[in-house]
Amino acid sequence: MSSKAQILAAVLANQPAKLPQPVFEPFSPQGQNNLDVFVKTAKGIGSSLHFFSGMQEVKNLITSSFSVGRIISPLAELSDIAETDFADLDAHTLENVELGVFKAHFGVAENSALWVTEALLGKRVSPFICQHLMLLVNKTAILQNMHQAYDSIGEADYDFGTFIAGPSKTADIEQSLVLGAHGPRSLVIVILG
């Protein structure tokens, strides 16, 4: 008997009588205003925030804060200051990227996580390998909590998706928080609109 058959048979023999799949009621919000909660949470975990009305302000921020180094972004609006055609490159060649700029589908107030999928990233590795990361999200796309987040995702068919909350970090050495473990050293969140 194959291991698969053996395991499935053992599971079937040993699993208890079937319990119903639980249905849970909507959970209470953490605060009155999603955006306020989002901002407070994001700052609390080391992200920086900007409120901009349009892409020109985003550009100004990028050119003033990231004047040196390689910048990638799949956003056509940024084609004059960033590489936009990196999707077909070998992932390893992104190793020297200083800044990556991407749009997020939405943000989640309770944990300041931003949901991005491969379609928005150009390459999977891009929001991880860059030294600094900038994510743009619409003001109207801040959801309350993770339940709303998955309601919003629904049955979307992505190849890869990730919630990103703050810069890459570790506290493995005596619980001292250090930003910039393997991924971006900073996360800049731009709230648009």
């Binding site: 975990i45 300041s112 993770m146 339940h147 190849d159 990730t162 919630f163 990103i164 909350a165 810069p167």
Partner: peptide
Amino acid sequence: GVFLRLLARSATGQPITTYSSHFK
């Protein structure tokens, strides 16, 4: 939605881990 709300809060007192990656 349920588990990602509980995991990091229980583990380290963070609202969520920095990355929650969905490999499909």
